[in-house]
Write a protein that binds this DNA or RNA. Structure first.
Ligand code: SF4
Ligand code: SF4
Lengths: 161, 161
DNA sequence: AATATATGAGACCTTATTAATCCTATTTAT
DNA sequence: ATAAATAGGATTAATAAGGTCTCATATATT
């Protein structure tokens, strides 16, 4: 498992869209600029996000991306695995055939457990929490969530460049 | 973070040595063959393990590697991080300067927590456990648990000072 | 001492993956 | 029709991993 640049960018993109709010259209250029993502790279990433049903892509003049789900319903795990595939710490988890002994390997079991634990942790984090300052900490590991902050929906209308 | 081939090989090497027992000398060739590791690659890996104090390397005719610590005192985390450095899931954890917003980034906190959790999990696993649970070696080359080839055991000159 | 054996240490090459860009086609508002 | 914006695939560039090679060094054996 490796958190690639593409995955990191995808998270930033989803963060930005979550701040805009569900259903708000934002141009690719604006997201790229605000979230510090190479525009062409973002285009490719968005295709994966769209394929996963997370965003809708509006083509043509005044096109852009639209968040399709409620931020609270989008987990960090979901976005990460959309970009890098199902998480597995050691290759032998993803492709057991790669190692001849995986069937009776004690270490294999450890990687499996650690993988599950990591995935569960990332599943507990949603984008509603992430756009709220107080949720910098994992609920289970730190403190309970504070009441959510009122989101400020920014108009999709942005001046060209 | 990525579990490289080198790290996986290091684990297998340490597993094999743990089965041999602390203080037992085993040739690089034997380990490479039994644990399915390219011999020259193992040589490089062993240097890192030696630098970390996990094994001792005996040069010259009838040379090889010797486990320096009790298997129960060696954690999986220790071996993994010897090979790939301190675990961090996202680059911004290892190099916060890489992202301009890490200081006030909620996602950053999640990666930190997940990282700590993963490290703790791997820290709880030691090689005593791993060798009693199951074998990690090729079935055809599978060796019994009891020490073999007693004549290769170096006379108790294993004073770890 | 001479020889054979085995590893040390690092340079080197080869391949794989990631990151980013480029180009043409397509879609849509005006 | 035109301009604005993304689609989608091809291509390139950069980085990292995986493995190999060579010469130096150490040790047991004779
Ligand atoms: S030895 Fe065990 S942990 Fe290593 S690759 Fe094989 S199955 Fe996985
Ligand atoms: S945006 Fe947050 S998680 Fe992403 S690289 Fe920056 S600090 Fe890390």
């Amino acid at each position: 498992m490796r958190l690639t640049r593409a995955a990191e960018y995808a998270i930033r993109c989803m963060l930005y869209l979550s701040r805009q709010g569900q259903g708000v259209l934002t141009s690719r250029q604006e997201i790229a600029q605000q979230a510090d993502i190479p525009t062409h790279f973002l285009a490719k990433i968005a295709q994966d996000l769209a394929k996963a049903g997370l965003i809708e892509i509006r083509q043509g003049a005044r096109g852009g991306f639209i968040l399709r789900k409620n931020p609270a319903a989008i987990t960090l795990l979901e976005v990460v695995e959309t970009m890098i595939g199902e998480i597995s710490l050691n290759d032998c988890i993803a492709r057991p055939a790669g190692c001849k002994v995986s069937y009776h390997c004690a270490v294999h079991r450890v990687w499996l457990d650690a993988r599950d634990q990591l995935r569960n942790t990332l599943r507990q984090v949603n984008f509603e929490q992430l756009i709220t300052d107080a949720s910098c900490f994992l609920p289970s590991l730190h403190m309970p969530l504070e009441p959510k902050r009122l989101e400020t929906i920014v108009s999709s209308r942005t001046d060209p460049q």
